[in-house]
Structures are given as structure tokens and as C-alpha cells.
């Protein structure tokens, strides 16, 4: 027993980190997002479309358990009206209780409720989906990423590239294709170009025209009803669910950076003035003469 545990531990230790070497997973293409960069903001219409895609397609299997209905009308999100959210919440059945008789009962949802999960528990979810529970989507955009590699992981810091998760999700949703010759897809699996190992349990979820978008004045849908657009919209929505305070964060960040810049400028000159009392600041050491004394 002890030896076995040792061996397992040794295996975990010795072989950690070999994930990306095992399978050659293609790099997802980088998308243009309205929420990237230091002044990024969500596109409200896109979030609303993305929510529609989630609700009509993803929600049948995937939960959104950290998101409450009220969040949908909060600032910095899809910003549905409060009346819309109230009506939407009422369409859901929420389990509550126990009542006076000691029984659990169902009631219409309220804005304060969180999205109910499609399955009562993880085992039920797994049982209904070929043995693998569909993951909750609340944090998906932050819980997925892809390997950037040298030197990109350094340049990413300067260009503030933090949409790895979103880019991966778009690529994944568009990545369903025929398996190449010689690749056997196990039963219950589906070939996906961008999924690590290529075999994903989720069948292709989106198809063109599947979700009807709101029409503009000209009677045209406000965005193309294509898999590509659905994927982008639902990913934008999931980026918001994963990081609901993204806009507030970037806005406050700019103010803080500006303040700190001014303060450090003031401090710099104050410091110079103070040090002038002792004849100015002198730092370090003189370059020593490069000769040796005998």
C-alpha cells in the first residue's frame, strides 16, 4: 500500500506538466473583441444575442449556476431592463421550500434567483450525457485557455492579451469537422479540430439559422444568423458571466493608473527638492579604475 502510494505520488510528481507535449493542438485564431484592451467594453446587443444563444442552445445541458437573473440588468452586462428580467425569471421554475407541510415546492423565478441547473446533480448530468457531465458555463471563459509559448507569453503582458479563453471557445464552437483519415473517433465522441486530443463528448451544438436574432428596422436580423456569429456572441456573453465586473475594473484601472502617475510625478520632484539640501542625489559607485594596484 505504502509503496503503491509512493509510486503514484512519484508519477504525479515526475510527470506533471507534460500536457501540451502529448497532443499537437492547433492554436485558436485571435478574434476582435469589443471588451479587449484598456478601454474595452461589452457590446450590449452582442451580450443580449449571446444570452439568447445560451438560452436556446446551451442551457438544455449546461448550467450557469453562479449567475443570477438580476445580473442581466446590472450595469456593465447585457443591461436588459428590470421588467424584462422579472418576466424572464418568472419563466423559470425554481425549487423552494420546505413549506409548512414540510414539502419542497416549485415557484416561478424571481430576479434574485440564480439560473437553475438543467440537472439535479452532477451524476444525473453525467448519466444523461453519456457518462460525462456537461460543465457549468459561468466561468468557462476564464477556465479555458491555450498554451501561448515563448515569446508570446511575454508580449501578451504588454498588449494586454487576456482573451485566451474567449478565443479558444470561439475556435472550439467552430472546430467541428470530419475526422482526418486514420483517426478513429471512439463511440460517443466527436472530432473537434481545437479540442485537446480532438475527441470531445459534446456533439456539434450550433448550426446556421438555429437561433433567430431580433430584426432591425429594415427587417433584417441585427447580426448574421451563422454558426460563426453565434459562437462569437455566446462567447462574449460567457466572458461577461465569467467576469461581470470587467468594465468597472478597466474603468477604475484607468483612474487608478492616472492618479498613481500624477502622484509619482509629484513625489519625484519632491524627492529631488529634498535631496537638493544635501547637494543632490548621488547613487551607486564610481566606475572603479580598471587597473590593479601592484
Amino acid at each position: 500500500m505504502m509503496k503503491r502510494t509512493l509510486l503514484i505520488a512519484a508519477a504525479v510528481l515526475g510527470f506533471s506538466a507534460s500536457a501540451y507535449a502529448a497532443g499537437e493542438t492547433p492554436v485558436p485564431p485571435q478574434q476582435k473583441w469589443t471588451f479587449q484592451g484598456p478601454f474595452g467594453k461589452f457590446d450590449r446587443a452582442q451580450l443580449q444575442r449571446g444570452f439568447k444563444v445560451y438560452r436556446e442552445v446551451c442551457a438544455s445541458c449546461h448550467g450557469l449556476s453562479y449567475v443570477a437573473f438580476r445580473n442581466l440588468s446590472a450595469e456593465g452586462g447585457p443591461e436588459f431592463s428590470e421588467a424584462q428580467v422579472k418576466a424572464l425569471a418568472a419563466e423559470y421554475k425554481i425549487q423552494d421550500g420546505p413549506n409548512e407541510a414540510g414539502d419542497m415546492f416549485e415557484r416561478p423565478g424571481r430576479p434574485a434567483d440564480r439560473f437553475p441547473s438543467p440537472f439535479p446533480n452532477e451524476n444525473a448530468a453525467a448519466a444523461a450525457n453519456g457518462g460525462k457531465a456537461p460543465p457549468d458555463l459561468s466561468l468557462m471563459a476564464k477556465a479555458r485557455t491555450y498554451e501561448r509559448g515563448f515569446p508570446w507569453f511575454i508580449t501578451d503582458v504588454f498588449r494586454q492579451y487576456s482573451e485566451n479563453g474567449a478565443d479558444y471557445l470561439v475556435a472550439l464552437l467552430n472546430g467541428y469537422e470530419e475526422a482526418p483519415a486514420g483517426f478513429t473517433v471512439p463511440q460517443g465522441g466527436h472530432y473537434n479540430h481545437y479540442y485537446p486530443g480532438h475527441v470531445i463528448a459534446m456533439p456539434k451544438p450550433l448550426s446556421d439559422g438555429q437561433v433567430e436574432y431580433a430584426k432591425n428596422e429594415a427587417g433584417q436580423p441585427q447580426a448574421p444568423e451563422t454558426v460563426e456569429q453565434y459562437a462569437k456572441d455566446v462567447t462574449a456573453f460567457l466572458t461577461w458571466t465569467a467576469e461581470p465586473h470587467l468594465e468597472a475594473r478597466k474603468r477604475l484601472g484607468f483612474q487608478v493608473m492616472l492618479f498613481l502617475l500624477v502622484l509619482s510625478g509629484l513625489l519625484y520632484f519632491t524627492k529631488k527638492k529634498v535631496w537638493a539640501n544635501v547637494g543632490g542625489e548621488v547613487e551607486g559607485h564610481a566606475t572603479p579604475p580598471m587597473t590593479h594596484n601592484p
Binding site: L7, I8, A11, V12, F15, S16, S18, A19
Partner: peptide
């Protein structure tokens, strides 16, 4: 048998 892969579990 134990049900975790001996590679990374």
C-alpha cells in the same frame, strides 16, 4: 484497480 491514470490521475 485504482481508477486514476498513473500519468496525471
Amino acid at each position: 484497480v485504482y481508477g486514476n491514470c498513473t500519468h496525471l490521475g
